[in-house]
């Protein structure tokens, strides 16, 4: 229980690169709803993972 478990979130973001990533250090991580999971995840929003260290990665298959 004490150990920090790390969940890796990959986000396959195919959106065209406009604007830029928000640098949100120190701020609350914005929440978002997940529509479909491919490997079972713990909960359906990022808020369900409170208490875990999360590496959230915006990612694509290409």
């Amino acid at each position: 229980m004490k150990r920090l478990s790390t969940a890796v979130i990959l986000i396959a973001a195919a959106t065209t690169a406009r604007a830029d990533w928000q640098h949100l250090n120190g701020q609350e991580a914005p929440s978002f709803e997940v529509e479909k999971w491919f490997n079972p995840a713990e909960g359906s929003t990022i808020d369900d993972l409170r208490g875990k260290a999360i590496l959230l990665e915006f990612w694509a298959t290409w």
Partner: peptide, 8 residues
């Protein structure tokens, strides 16, 4: 866990 905006 993973999340994508590509086709499922």
């Amino acid at each position: 866990m993973a999340i994508s905006n590509e086709a499922a």
